[in-house]
Design a protein around this nucleic acid. Structure first.
Length: 809
RNA sequence: GCCGGAGUGGCGGAAUUGGUAUACGCGCGCGACUCAAAAUCGCGUGGAGCAAUCCUUGAGGGUUCGAGUCCCUCCUCCGGCACCA
């Protein structure tokens, strides 16, 4: 009897898979397509850890399962290579990021292959290669040409450690996402000229399409909140003096009679113009201080702050003169950067009014403790007595006739800032001409190749290291031929990752970003998973795909048909894995201990439902190993034994329900219960073997063969080895999935539970589908039941077919 | 504060969606094999009780023949958003 030696068989099969290219997908195949993938990886010097092992195994199992079912299954591979870590490493060591990627990526190949992931290496891509980022730059050009890319000076979040601008989603608790430790600085604001993509143009359609997605609910909610649509009205308040007017956005126009003052954001354009001489010094001081303050500081002080401008505006509904204030609780980036304050019906305004002694006027009759709810209108002139929800529309309609209001919808989502003042990214294909301003690099001159440098540190003036690359930098304007300079900003790496899945279908194309015919055959991605990026990456990818859809490049506007937001794996002590804590677990270490990657894969997929966070259990892999070893041993026993041609219904009734269960569980990514049912089956086969010894029968062979097929997505090496030992044609990992037969799902006898008053008292064996009366007779006749019921008459009985009977006495 | 999700043995977790609660695994205990250990195999394992039996899905109440599952009140934990007008 052969021993189970994962280290031998895993290497053997990895070699064979490589040689025979079993996982190479034929993109033009006439089979039905299936594509499963996890978010691609950022290659770092540290290599993969157990969290990656979990992520990538999830999609590999799906890809393998579908491949076994006969689909043309594509499990692509690529690298998200641009970004700060490689650049920081380059700054420290002088080794160029290009060079370190050339070293790191091959070492990742080894790790990925050791995990037994069924990637198609022939179509590998990496975002840092010019042949890839040529098309990242092309996307920028297309955005520009379609009016969706623009440049604007804005106050931006700035990380003094990275020396770069940060997007909102890169700020965690007021600190840079890469520098969020206790000693790290809080992000600052700095005025920088930035390139933006107009994602706000797509806000509505992104939101509309969210509900229909087959995605983890948490992610859909997060995206909806992020887009943050609210319907309301824009209302114009004329100033008491002068011709200026202030527009405010409100979702509660019904409370307009209660608007007793206006508040402008510190950065609002009119602050300067309207402030009176007397108030000027105080306002200027306040504005200066509050713009310097970071988000954290603003939130930290719960006390509302603000200052009176000295100016007044006219409430358009009742012509009352109300004061205009400046306060930092009003945000410049949302709505119009100005609000009408209704202290009677808004908690923040209420707090502010109390602090500064401003008028509070109740205009909706609400419950005492709930000032923000709806009710009947009061103190509102002709609108008194009607529902506030009706007044909302009426007031807007009435003011609209006078040109003082209109219905308006606003969004929380901001345009996507895509400029980074860093070296290691795709250069923005723009030439800044002294005469013409920014001019697009002509498409035929793409890619703008990133030059290798001696020093990769940012130039300190806010520009990237590219500002020092003289030869590269200086270039004539493509429009007028005059002197120009290349843009030194590079593109946010989120752009690289927002379209990579499409390049998987045509990775070598030098003429087009991808061939639409192939892409349309393969899109959308059938299965996508990851444990991060519920908003940023997942929204950007949707945005870019929708943009491509409008360009006519893809038919389907949504990229990911199914998205699983999986949980993460933590250290045994409940902390996150981290290098500094030294609590990391290296998958290769587990594999090399002799357990093999199959056991690791089984453990990771068995430990819990995939959306749950799990703790690393050192006993888990040995447990999974034991299970595979049991399959191995029972298979060896069959091989070593004499065969007969007998059939056993008992065996078939064990295996067929498991085939059904595992198939259905895989469809729903319920891997843990799929594995549990295979473990249970294995145990039952052992029991049966001890009891009745079916080892050499046809049915036994069928059961073992099916079990090997079922376990193959999780333990592909072990499965292929046993498959070949059974003498079947290479490979179980392609086109071999068992089919269950319904006739073996039901047994001819069933256990019926007998309850008395809802409590389980006995169970009886009866022929399946017995008539109700037979069951009731048997139940009442049952000795144990009889003693419980005694002389009490059965008042009522409930019978659930083939399950239970409940006697009420 | 708001929006999600979840509380089940010593632990990770099952439960056909209202029908035998604790599947499967880990851990633990006992036994077989062994000079011994490991590995492997077998048996046991929610709690209380000698037992019959009783109790048990965060707490309390309700609906029902029957509730982990549905409804109400409360508590705790996790995740996301957070002065978004």
């Amino acid at each position: 009897m052969k021993k189970f030696t994962p280290s031998e068989i895993e290497q053997k099969w990895q070699k064979i898979w490589d040689q025979k290219q079993i996982y190479k997908a034929d993109l033009n195949s006439s089979r039905s397509k299936y594509i499963a993938m996890s978010m691609f990886n950022y290659p770092s010097g540290a290599g993969i850890h157990i969290g990656h092992a979990m992520n990538y195994t999830i999609s590999d199992v799906m890809a393998r399962y579908k491949r076994q079912q006969g689909y043309e299954s594509y499990h692509p591979i690529g690298w998200d290579a641009f970004g700060l870590p490689a650049e920081n490493y380059a700054i420290k060591t002088g080794v160029s990021p290009q060079q370190s990627m050339a070293q790191i990526i091959p070492s990742y190949h080894k790790q990925y292959k050791a995990m037994g992931w069924s990637n198609d290496w022939s179509k590998e891509i990496s975002t840092h290669e010019p042949r890839y980022y040529k098309w990242t730059q092309w996307i920028f050009s297309q955005m520009y040409k379609n009016g969706l890319a623009y440049q604007e000076a804005r106050m931006q979040w700035w990380c003094s450690k990275c020396q770069t601008v940060l997007a909102n989603e890169q700020i965690i608790d007021g600190k840079c996402w890469r520098h969020d430790g206790a000693d790290d600085p809080i992000v600052e604001k700095k005025e920088v000229k930035q390139w933006f993509f107009k994602i706000t143009d797509y806000a509505d359609e992104l939101l509309e399409a969210t509900d229909a997605l087959d995605w983890s609910e948490v992610v859909k909610t997060a995206q909806k909140n992020w887009i943050g649509k609210s319907k309301g009205a824009e209302i114009e308040f004329k100033l008491s003096e002068g011709s200026e007017a202030i527009k405010v956005f409100t979702t509660r126009p019904d409370t307009l009679f209660g608007a007793t003052f206006l508040v402008l954001a510190s950065e609002h354009d009119l602050v300067d113009k309207i402030t009176t001489k007397e108030q000027k010094a105080e306002v200027e001081k306040y504005v200066k201080e509050s713009t310097k303050k970071t988000e954290v500081e603003r939130q930290a002080s719960k006390e509302k702050t603000g200052v009176f401008t000295g100016a007044y505006a006219i409430n358009p509904i009742n012509n009352q003169e109300i004061p205009i204030w400046v306060a930092d609780y009003v945000l410049v980036g949302y709505g119009t950067g100005a609000i009408m304050a209704v202290p009677a019906h808004d908690e923040r305004d209420n707090e502010f009014a109390i602090r500064f002694g401003l008028d509070i006027s109740k205009v909706v009759d609400t419950k005492i403790n709930d000032i923000t709810s709806e009710g009947l209108m009061i103190n509102s002139g002709e609108y008194n007595g009607i529902q506030s929800s009706d007044a909302r529309e009426k007031i807007v309609a009435d003011l609209e006739k006078k040109g003082l209001a209109k219905e308006k919808t606003t969004f929380k989502i901001r345009d996507w800032s895509v400029s980074r003042q860093r070296y290691w990214g795709a250069p923005i294909p723009i030439i800044n001409c002294q005469k013409c301003g920014p001019v697009l690099v002509p498409d035929e001159q793409l890619p703008v190749v990133l030059p290798e440098l001696d020093d990769y540190a940012p130039s300190g003036d806010g520009r990237s290291a590219l500002a020092r690359a003289k030869v590269w930098l200086e270039i004539d304007c493509p429009k007028c031929g005059g002197k120009g300079e290349r843009e030194t900003d590079t593109l946010d790496t989120y752009i690289c990752s927002s379209w990579y899945f499409l390049r998987y279908f045509d990775p070598q194309n030098t003429d087009k970003i991808f061939d639409s015919t192939i892409a349309n055959k393969w899109m959308p991605i059938d299965f996508y998973n990851g444990g991060d990026h519920a908003t940023a990456h997942m929204i950007y990818a949707r945005f870019i795909t929708r943009f491509f859809h409008k360009l006519g490049l893809v038919d389907d506007p949504e990229p990911f048909k199914k998205f699983l937001f999986n949980g993460k794996i933590m250290a045994s002590d409940g902390q996150m894995f981290s290098k500094s804590k030294g609590n990391g677990v290296d998958p290769l270490e587990i594999i090399n201990q002799g357990y093999g990657s199959d056991s690791l894969r089984v453990y990771l997929m068995f430990a819990a439902p995939l959306d749950l966070w799990i703790r690393w259990d050192p006993q888990g892999v040995p447990g999974a190993y034991r299970f595979l070893n049991r399959i191995w041993n029972i298979a060896q026993e069959f091989i070593d034994n004499d065969k007969d041609n007998t059939e056993s219904e008992e065996v078939l009734r064990l295996i067929h329900p498991v085939i059904k269960k595992v198939t259905e569980d895989l469809e729903n990514q319920k891997y843990n219960t799929a594995i549990a049912s295979m473990m249970k089956l294995t145990n039952e086969l052992y029991e049966l073997k001890a009891k009745a010894g079916f080892i050499g029968s046809n049915s036994w062979l069928f059961a073992l063969k099916s079990l090997i097929q079922l376990v193959a997505p999780f333990a592909p090496h072990t499965a292929d080895e046993l498959w070949s030992q059974f003498g079947y044609e290479y490979s179980v990992n392609k086109d071999h999935w068992p089919q269950w037969q319904d006739k073996y799902l039901v047994s001819d006898t069933t256990t019926i539970v007998i309850q008395v008053n809802g409590k389980v008292r006995a169970n009886i064996q009866v022929p399946t589908d017995s008539p109700e009366q037979d069951i009731l007779d048997l139940a009442v006749a049952n000795e144990k039941i009889n003693t419980i019921i005694g002389n009490n008459p059965v008042k009522k009985s409930i019978y659930i077919k083939n399950k239970l009977v409940n006697l009420v006495v």
